[in-house]
Design a protein around this nucleic acid. Structure first.
Length: 597
RNA sequence: GCCGGUGUAGCUCAAUGGUAGAGCAACCCCUUCGUAAGGGGUAGGUUAUCGGUUCAAGUCCGAUUACCGGCUCCA
């Protein structure tokens, strides 16, 4: 994406990382003389290089490779630019098909060929590579580096091409910066939603149920239901009406929608019902369209907003499944808005504003998210249907709405849906990881295919516009994001257990249960830890579960009708009147406050 | 789907090709405690699955499966 590229070019570490990348491939060349070098760039947090090699390389080999890299760095090899003609370069790289292919492209674009030399030609270490630069002056400028992972990658990112071996690494100008970076990686691992999901008992997977099919445990389901309730309440006020549709449909529905021709590979195989093919739905739109069509519509009915918490099923490739972030059964905060062309821009803007409302409530600001504006890749026309004029119209309307919203937007060529451009909200979590959370489209094509029409003032039939939107995306991915963003320490309203009541001894259990019931009456989620454990152990366990409030009750509290409040931040608020605590927590819950007190 | 790696008790991890172990959790007993782990005991395993090599396989080999790191993909 353009923005990222700009940022990268301005990154002062870029030349150094680029040089580190060359150090890596020279070290590899020396260790595995038969390998062929493909290519590798500096990237946002480091660099990688793709090799074509016969041997298997695993992270166990990193020690050996890093040792050799360090030798090259210690040798402080000069890195110098060499100009060359295509012809000369083709001769130099005559044994390397990757470089030759690259050279041909440079030639076709009419660009200049630049090579970078590392070390002295007849010296102990020497490398000459096709490269646009820029570089550090010498390898000695790489003060700190580390290899991070090894992976497979297709040559030029095309799955029809050969699979190469990719090695990822990072480099810095000081050891301290590297250590800080590695520490941050460790922190991110601790926040990994898969790890926290297990520790906090939010969800699980079962080999018997199948990959990519998450099972929500009681605690995780609390979060789902809170989000769902929130969306239902919010969207009701905004004029959405709820509908409900089955999980399957006859093939004819998906033929009309175009999903079968364009999207068949991502749908599960059909089941035969009385000689007719039925498919599990991968999206809710066609079902909603049939509700729209069930009765003639007037311009007075528009905009019409159908919302559904629909479960959809997508046959994601096994290798792409990833915790809650990429699953095969997806619960969407879905809705389709049917409106006139004139209403479309305003309606789309309202959708964008709804996103802002949701994200702001969760403490995210405009700096934390942006819109990836998905445009068609003109080189892959077969991936899209419809005519250019309609695509352009949809893009224009969406762009206007995006502009009015004031939300940052970045073009993403190739990111369009098959039936139109789309806007994906991308959120940066508190650890700096980015997640594509919500997809929205202004669709001028489905109305044509389904003949979604209304009768206008003058009695003429007109096609409406459909807006697809899902601000909370799929609950799987959204909750995955929330887990990592909050590191499991959810705001009170989303916390599976909000209040842990901790009696000091058995004597206070009755009081604790009475207290628990008072919370439950207020729809708050409270548990009593009645184990015969020490208070220290009970505090520790509640703390590890990141429960916002620990209410300690001993004889003193029972006597005075109080509770001692400890927050999960470790703060001890001491004894407070029960009524005050109940009111305070209830208020924080109802207002969805991010504060604890 | 592709490349590479991993799979031992609910969890975190041990175990030269030679009797599968520990801590935590669970269960039982003791303890009744004032803000991040009180003590003792019991039980828990077809070492992911299937096949092979071997006198002998958790360990070596093959296939399958799931997961992990990426790639491709992502309505």
């Amino acid at each position: 994406m353009s923005k990222v590229k700009e940022e990268l070019e301005n990154d002062p570490l870029m030349p150094l990382r680029h040089t580190a990348e060359h150090v890596l491939h020279l070290a590899m060349q020396e260790l595995y003389p038969s390998l062929k070098k493909a290519m590798g760039p500096p990237i946002e947090e480091g660099f990688y290089f793709d090799f074509d090699l016969d041997e298997k390389v695993s992270s166990d080999d990193f020690v050996k490779i890093e040792k050799r890299m360090q030798e090259l760095i210690d040798a402080d090899l000069p890195v110098t630019l060499v100009h060359s003609s295509v012809k000369e370069a083709k001769d130099i790289f005559k044994d390397n098909p990757f470089k030759l292919e690259w050279l041909q492209e440079i030639h076709n674009r009419g660009e200049e060929v630049t090579l970078y030399e590392m070390g002295e030609k007849d010296g102990k270490h020497y490398d000459l590579d096709l490269c646009a630069g820029p570089h550090a002056r010498s390898t000695g400028e790489v003060k700190a580096f580390k290899l991070l992972s090894v992976a497979g990658a297709y040559w030029k990112g095309n799955e029809k091409n050969k699979m190469l071996t990719r090695i990822y690494g990072t480099a810095f100008d000081t050891k301290e910066k590297l250590e800080k970076y590695l520490k941050n990686l460790e922190e991110q691992k601790k926040r990994d939603h898969r790890k926290l999901g297990q520790e906090l008992e939010l969800f699980t997977f079962s080999e018997e149920v199948g990959p990519g099919l998450p099972l929500w445990t009681p605690k995780g389901n609390v979060i789902r239901e809170e989000l769902e309730k929130w969306a239902k309440d919010t969207e009701k006020k905004l004029g959405y009406m709820r509908v409900a549709t089955p999980h399957i449909a006859k093939h004819t529905l998906f033929e009309i929608s175009g999903h079968l021709p364009y999207y068949r590979d991502d749908m599960y195989n059909p089941m035969d019902i009385e000689g007719e093919e039925y498919f599990l739905k991968g999206m809710n739109c066609p079902h909603h369209h049939m509700i729209f069509k069930s009765k003639p519509k007037s311009y007075k009915d528009l905009p019409l907003r159908y919302a559904e918490y629909g479960m959809v099923y997508r046959f994601e490739q096994s290798g792409t499944l990833f915790g809650l972030m990429r699953v095969r059964a997806i619960q969407q905060n879905d809705a389709h808005i049917y409106c006139t062309l004139e209403q479309a821009e305003d309606e789309f803007l309202k959708v964008l504003e709804l996103h802002e409302f949701y994200y702001n409530t969760l403490g995210l600001t405009k700096d934390d998210y942006y819109i990836a504006f998905g445009l068609p890749d003109t080189n892959k026309k077969e991936k899209y249907h419809g005519d250019k004029a309609t695509w352009d119209k949809a893009e224009e309307l969406m762009r206007k709405a995006c502009k009015r919203s004031g939300i940052r937007s970045i073009d993403d060529v190739g990111g369009a849906a098959f039936y139109g451009p789309k806007t994906d909200f991308t959120i940066r979590s508190s650890t700096g990881r980015e997640f594509a959370i919500s997809t929205n489209q202004l669709d001028l094509f489905m109305p044509q295919r389904f003949n979604l029409e209304y009768t206008d003032k003058d009695g003429s039939k007109k096609l409406c516009v459909v807006i697809h939107r899902a601000p909370l995306g799929s609950h799987e991915r959204f909750i995955g994001f929330l887990i990592e963003h909050f590191g499991g320490a959810f705001p009170v309203w989303l916390s599976p257990v909000q209040v842990q009541i901790i009696p000091i001894s058995e004597k206070q259990i009755d009081y604790a249960i009475k207290l628990q019931n008072m919370f439950i009456e207020r729809n708050l989620r409270a548990e009593v830890d009645d184990r015969s454990e020490t208070i220290q152990a009970k505090i520790r366990d509640a703390q590890l579960q990141k429960i916002p409030y620990m209410l300690v009750v001993g004889d003193r509290e029972v006597q005075n009708n109080e509770v001692s409040v400890r927050l999960r931040t470790g703060e001890d608020l001491k004894a407070k009147p029960l009524t005050e605590v109940l009111a305070k927590i209830e208020d924080i819950y109802l207002t969805k406050s991010l504060k604890l007190w």
